[in-house]
């Protein structure tokens, strides 16, 4: 799992499974601090996500809501979209192709 931060955009690359979630959370720390802005999570290269990864998404979304920012989830692949649908996450995030 790799996280590339470029300004307010984070590109998530690879498998966001349980063991990868802690380092991902740490890598995203700068975006949590800037959650009063519009943050983009580029998921076009995200291959897999488990509940520990969804947790991070939700925490960031809640932080943004509290600070007046928003979170855009960009380019999610079909299988991850299904997980988002199953868990109601499609309604919680702004989804962009």
């Amino acid at each position: 799992m790799e996280v590339q931060i470029n300004g307010l955009t984070a590109s998530l690359i690879g498998r966001l499974d349980t063991p990868a979630s802690q380092e991902t959370m740490e890598a995203l720390a700068p975006l949590f601090e800037q959650a009063d802005n519009t943050i983009v999570l580029d998921c076009s290269q995200l291959e897999y996500i488990s509940s520990s990864g969804l947790r991070i998404f939700l925490m960031l979304r809640k932080q943004a809501a509290a600070k007046g920012g928003k979170v855009i989830v960009k380019g999610i692949q079909e299988d991850i979209r299904k997980v988002f649908m199953m868990t109601g996450f499609l309604n919680l995030f702004e989804i962009e192709d």
Binding site: S50, S51, R55, K62, A65, M86, T87, G88, N91, L92
Partner: peptide, 24 residues
Amino acid sequence: DVNVDLSLEDRPIGGLGIFLVRNI
């Protein structure tokens, strides 16, 4: 079960793991 229809404010952070097992 987790209520996946809750609003952002009411939505708890955890509890999705078992929910996913049951749904899949």
